[in-house]
Design a protein around this nucleic acid. Structure first.
Lengths: 324, 324
DNA sequence: CGGCTCCTTGCACGTATGTTCAATCCGATT
DNA sequence: AATCGGATTGAACATACGTGCAAGGAGCCG
């Protein structure tokens, strides 16, 4: 092996690969694998972890297509979205709920994203949780593009959002396209102007032609406050305006009402997220929701037809299919 | 759940599915899953086994495409086939070797076979070993068709071959097409006649249009005697004739020489396996080889261009790429 | 209704696996 | 050459897991 392909991790990865072969395809015990590889059992355990973490081993669960759960069928019938209900015990806390849904999504994501694709991603606590667990999958010529700005009066937002972006990017070996603008402009005219800049319009174009959008939901007026409202992005006056306008939630800092409408919500004109008419052209729009506090927001997003694929925890799913 | 889809195993499979979710997608411990499912940890362990065995959980190893092993690259370069080298320690016995290669193939097979496809399969010790381990995968409207007859002077062969066929069939939920003829006719004319029968020609047509062929190799003149030669299929005189004709192996009881040629091997006119010119039209032709005793036979099969995908144990692979 | 078998369950045990820790190796820096 | 920090290793320990077994059910005859 004097001319290995990747001098750095080639050895380790090659061992991990054979170990995975022996373990998952031939049912050998780690002890036995250790002997074949002339190393200790602990090292084999570590090799296998490594293999799983780097996406060398791919474990997927396949609903034998005939059997989406009862809940999933109901959701699909009523809202025309593909539903994935994540089993979570009713007793779980909201943080648990988020963590577990995020973990599931992170593991499945690779089945949707592939080479030559562009994925738009939002930011926020949901996206953050997912990003911390994405299972890597090597792709070529693919892009990860930020959907909305993350700056505010305190920071440029480049740290937080780009950390999330970056994790997706490295997991998929994709180019990362950051969106270096605030979440909301002070003056709509600035947005208009900037949108005409070639550097920015390039990004807007990518968003318009992306293959997948991945986002959580904001829910301004319910128990757990989304990052957008806690992080100093909005002033009290703006917040109140949303309230009087009847807003129930947002996707990438673009707001909507319970019936999915957005007309007359002036804040949207200053927001940097993609307009819903644009977003709706994206073939696959994956929405991740955890916790019943986001129920109203979810109903709105469904009404707005923003979602094609929904990941949701079990009890929220149950609540969703109960009377309006 | 009053109107479950499959009343029989619906409950068990549904539990197995959630258990798999919780275990593989959320990294819960079996103990924790047991609590959520209100059962004992042992039952969860069994549920998960069930999930794996029934193909509900799909574990696959992905060469990060850039890194096929050195050996695999060499084989691909020299013989224009996709190679899968199965790691097996050099110290392993030939039965071990076969068993381990077969296990690997059985686990991977589902990645090649899908709905609306037809797979032709041979019989013999290799195929038998594979059949005993195939991981199920549900498909629709797919067919498994026997490539060559299995009858001989002692039995109709329906038992042994159909057992193998059956295992593939049930694993994939495919229709099984048996081939109720002897391995070799006594008189070539009988074969010609029978081939014109509609019941048989229907089968021949299916073979001609199959999407995948799966077969092992026979090697008449080397250490381990293949089933064809041990099972009473050939008389001593026929065996000698093969020897003088320079035969080194067979695929589905059709024989070839070291250079891949078949002309003038009269036994082939009485054989029931598919003619190589027909076989070569099959888009994917998967050959499984274990043990260096099949090396000559493998070289011949490669020369005859019978193989598009090769599964082979490591040490045989090494021997293959060494001088002619 | 009883007795029969076959299947499923939870317990208990032994084995397999994950993880911590101290020792060691390696490469970089001085 | 010497020293340092970080990464890797195997031993030991603590868990987690698979499986034989006896007990309990569910169906099926007699």
């Amino acid at each position: 092996m004097t001319y290995a392909t990747d001098p750095v991790q080639s050895d380790r990865s090659r061992d991990a690969l054979t170990a995975a072969h022996l373990y998952y395809l031939q049912d050998l015990t780690m002890e036995a694998i250790a002997q074949e590889l002339h190393t200790s059992r602990s090292s084999v355990s570590r090799l296998l972890s490594h293999a799983r973490e780097t996406g060398l081993v791919n474990i997927q669960i396949k609903s034998p297509l005939d059997a989406p759960s009862h809940l999933e069928q109901q959701i699909e019938a009523r809202f025309q979205v593909t539903a994935h209900v994540v089993p979570v015990p009713d007793s779980a806390s909201d943080v648990d709920r988020l963590e577990r849904v995020a973990l599931s999504v992170a593991r499945i994501l690779g089945q949707y994203f592939d080479s030559n694709m562009t994925m738009g991603i939002a930011w926020g606590s949901t996206m953050n949780a997912i990003s911390r667990h994405v299972t890597p999958k090597q792709t070529h010529n693919s892009q990860v593009v930020q959907l909305n700005g993350a700056g505010n009066m305190r920071t440029t937002g480049l740290g937080y959002a780009s950390e999330i972006l970056g994790r997706f990017g490295t997991a998929f070996g994709a180019h990362v396209q950051q969106f270096p603008v605030p979440a909301f402009f002070d003056d709509p005219a600035t947005k208009q102007a900037l949108w005409r800049e070639r550097s920015i319009s390039r990004l807007i174009d990518m968003q318009a032609t992306m293959d997948i959008a991945l986002f959580g939901l904001g829910s301004p007026f319910s128990g757990v406050i989304s990052r957008v409202y806690a992080g100093g992005y909005l002033e009290q006056a703006e917040f109140d305006a949303l309230s009087t306008a009847g807003v129930v939630g947002d996707v990438a800092t673009v707001f909507y009402r319970a019936d999915g409408s957005t007309d007359g919500i002036t804040l949207n004109e200053r927001s940097t997220g993609p307009d819903f008419t644009v977003l709706r052209r994206t073939p696959r729009r994956i929405c991740v929701v955890a916790g019943r506090s986001k129920l109203a927001s979810l109903r709105g997003a469904l009404a707005a037809r923003l979602i094609t694929d929904l990941f949701v925890d079990e009890s929220t799913a149950r609540a969703l299919v109960e009377a309006p």
